[in-house]
Structure formats: structure tokens, C-alpha cells
Computed example of a mutant assay.
Amino acid sequence: MTEQQSQFSVCFWGVRGSVACPGEKTVRYGGNTACIEMQINDELLIFDGGTGLRLLGQKLLPAMPLKANMFFTHSHWDHIQGFPFFVPAFVAGNRFIIHGAISPNGSTIEQRLNDQMLHPNFPVPLQIMGAELKFCDLDLNEVVNIGDITIENALLNHPGEAVGYRVSYGGRSVAYVSDTEHFPDRLDDNVLRLAHEADVMIYDATYTDNEYHDVKVSKVGWGHSTWQEAVKVAKAANVKQLVIFHHDPMHHDDFMDDLAVQVAAEFPNSVIAREGMVIDLPVLAAQPAY
């Protein structure tokens, strides 16, 4: 057997939470909401469909026809609002397998994506999309296998519920933990399980501790965490690299620069997510010798 390097890349197309915030003060880190692309050899995985999904769609057009698996954490607007503007979904010949957990009220990911495109919210229905759309309801803790890729999920602490994901391939793993709120007296066992010895943990650090506990406008119960809690999880789970994600729309570029310094002082192998940022994980896969 010989060894050949496989591809495992993570690209960030939207890194904000709550609402898109384009403008002169968010140019360097980006203003689009959550969307992450993972390319693992020939398999394309897309996590969440915030406004960053529109940009990813434009990039993918030259590569059509496309097949991709899409995984949604939940259906709050900042995670689905880009889906109606995802151009490849309107093109016949493309195929998208769309995964999402059933919400507490019993609605499926298909129903929720459909409903946001109904009148009076949107001019055309989901059914006008020309691509083949296959919807798959995820059970909590269900394991999805796509070839040699394993995708696990676990429930997060978020109003209306959300799930986090762990993607594993070739001995490498990436944990995507957004949106979640830390517990006041302990670390979340589900988050620790997703992040355990991960090469990369992408974590919802919308607030600072001071913002979270602000006496005038407390963020307790809003469903998001802090960078200080991200560091605690990264250390406890023995994560190799921490990615701060789901930035508050009020956090401008200079704020994020300062934040990067503070986080790195506590966890040196850390980075603040930016639109367009790519993380490559080298994977050596055994190949037949000829």
C-alpha cells in the first residue's frame, strides 16, 4: 500500500450570528451569517444556510452539476435565510441531501425551509427549485455515514433546540458547536463529547463574559456562549485548535482584533473566524499500490 494525501478542508462563508451586518466596520471579518463548507475528497458538506450560503452558491456554480449534503443546526433566521438565495438549488441536475433534527413542535427541516418561502415572506415557493432535494430527519445522537466520513450530532442548549455536529474522517475531526449556551455550574456533556480531542472546534462565542452578565441588558437565557467558556471547553476536551464563531453583529473589526489577542493569551492555538478563511487538515489515506 502507498499513502496519498486526502483533502479535508473547512471554509467559512458566514461567521456572524443573529443578523447579517455588512458595512465599513465589518469588512475584515465579514457580515454574513452562519455557513460553513467542508470539502472531504469528492464529498461536499454544507453546515447551516445563513446569508453566507448565497456566497457559497456563487462559488459553486462553475462546478455544476453538484451533489452535496447539507446539515442544519436549527432554523432560526440567521441559519436558514440564505437558502432561498442559494442559486444551485434552482438548477436542474443538482442534488442536495438536507439533514435536520425535528423541532420540539414536531416540524421537520423540510417544513421549516418551506415555510420561510411562503407568502407573504417570499415571492416564490420552495417547490420552484429545480434541483433534486432529498430531506432527511435526524434523530438526536444519530450517526450519519457518507462513505468513510462520519457525522455525529448532539443536542445543544438553545431556545427552540439546536444540534451540534462532529465530522470525522481519516483520523481527523471537526466539531461545529453553534448555537449553544453554557451552563452556569458545569460544562455541557454533549459539547464535551462532540469536541473530545477534536482537531478543530468551532464554537459559539457570541458574547464576552462581561456582556453576558451585563446588569442592564443581561444575555443569560438568550442561547449563546462566551469566548471564556469556549476556552474552558477547548481545554477540558483537549481540542487542538479553537475557532471563535457566531460573532455578535455589534462587534466591529477592531473589537474582533482585540478579542483575538485576549483569546490567544488563554488558548494560543486559536483563531477568530473570518469570511473566506480556510482550514486544511492533512489526512493520509492508504491507497492500493500498482
Rank of each mutant, 00 (worst) to 15 (best):
N41Y: 10
N41L: 05
D42R: 15
D42M: 10
E43A: 14
E43P: 00
E43Y: 08
L44R: 15
L44G: 02
L44S: 06
L44Y: 04
I46W: 02
D48W: 01
D48F: 01
D48L: 00
G49I: 03
G50V: 03
G50N: 02
G50D: 07
T51H: 09
G52L: 12
G52Y: 09
G52R: 11
G52D: 13
R54A: 14
R54Q: 14
L55D: 15
L55F: 08
L55A: 15
L55T: 13
L55P: 00
L56N: 03
G57D: 04
G57H: 03
Q58P: 00
Q58N: 10
Q58D: 09
Q58T: 03
Q58G: 11
K59S: 11
L60E: 08
L60Q: 10
L61I: 15
P62H: 09
P62L: 09
P62W: 08
A63F: 11
P65E: 09
L66P: 08
L66M: 07
K67W: 01
K67V: 12
A68C: 09
A68V: 11
M70W: 15
T73E: 11
H74E: 15
H74M: 12
H74S: 14
H74R: 11
S75V: 15
S75N: 14
W77K: 09
D78A: 15
H79G: 09
H79D: 08
I80W: 01
I80R: 02
I80M: 04
Q81K: 06
Q81F: 03
G82W: 01
G82R: 03
G82N: 04
F83S: 00
F83A: 01
P84N: 03
F85A: 07
F86N: 05
F86V: 04
V87D: 08
V87K: 12
P88M: 11
P88C: 08
A89L: 04
A89F: 05
F90T: 13
V91R: 13
V91L: 13
A92R: 14
A92D: 10
G93Q: 09
N94Q: 07
N94D: 08
N94K: 10
R95W: 04
R95D: 04
R95S: 12
R95T: 11
R95V: 06
F96M: 02
F96A: 02
I97D: 08
I98L: 05
I98H: 04
H99Y: 14
G100R: 06
G100Y: 03
A101Q: 07
I102R: 14
I102W: 02
S103V: 07
P104M: 08
